[in-house]
């Protein structure tokens, strides 16, 4: 329940200031537009899943890591640390907050991206679900690892170095699943989706169990 309070507090601040959300939407729009004008339409179907994920990776790196960074900037992280709240609850709160941001970005960007690339998506529901599941895994990884680098002066450089090896299986599986949903050939889609779900669950459990060490002292 305390995790919900952390997420609610962050959302209240975000909807009031719109700092992160506006930045993420703007960045996603610009990169989507740049990709759409630079890729020939004949290649759109083949390249769109990877480019879509590039957009989400850029935007995610920019936005999701800010959940903890903002607490450091406003000097409120210690306020959470001295409160009777388990570190895992703080992490879950931040993940929930990032998930809501992610869904908002996805709902806005996905139709625009499909429109810009003039994609004829055979199975839009599967596409949305694949992207969402991939993003859930991505959010879990970024949210939990960002605490490790928030105090570093080189955090912008360190975060991708830490995150990419970990999220690589999620990215490749999601790209595969999105490609299949666009083409409509759903044979074998279960494997990448199962990998995304399984990997996300493992990452979530590991993050909750180990977060205390990153969060304290």
């Amino acid at each position: 329940m305390k995790a919900l309070e952390v997420a609610k507090k962050d959302l209240k601040i975000e909807f009031r200031t719109k700092g992160t959300l506006n930045l993420m939407i703007l960045f996603a729009l610009i990169t989507s537009m740049m990709f759409s004008v630079s890729i020939p339409m004949s290649l759109a179907e083949k390249t769109a899943p990877s480019l879509l994920w590039l957009v989400f990776i850029f935007v995610g790196m920019l936005g999701y890591s800010r959940a903890f960074l903002k607490e450091v900037e406003t000097e409120t992280l210690d306020g959470l640390k001295i409160s009777p709240i388990a570190p895992a609850s703080v992490l879950i709160g931040k993940i929930l907050y990032n998930l809501i941001l992610m869904i908002l970005i996805e709902v806005i960007i996905l139709p625009i991206f499909i429109g810009l690339f003039n994609l004829d998506v055979a199975n839009p529901v599967i596409m949305f679900l694949s992207v969402t599941m991939g993003n859930v895994g991505f959010v879990i990884v970024v949210s939990s690892l960002s605490i490790l680098v928030i105090k570093s002066k080189m955090r912008e450089m360190l975060l991708p170095v830490l995150i990419f090896p970990v999220v690589f299986p999620i990215i490749t599986s999601t790209i595969l699943a999105v490609r299949k949903s666009i083409s409509g050939d759903l044979v074998g889609i279960f494997s990448p989706i199962a990998l995304i779900v399984g990997f996300s669950i493992i990452m979530f459990v590991v993050a909750c169990l180990t977060f205390e060490y990153a969060f304290s002292d």
């Binding site: 209240k12 601040i13 200031t17």
Partner: peptide, 16 residues
């Protein structure tokens, strides 16, 4: 260090 959130009101801070 006050541990207060600048973008919340006084009431919202205490409520949190």
């Amino acid at each position: 260090n006050t541990f207060l959130y600048d973008d919340l009101t006084a009431y919202e801070n205490l409520q949190f």
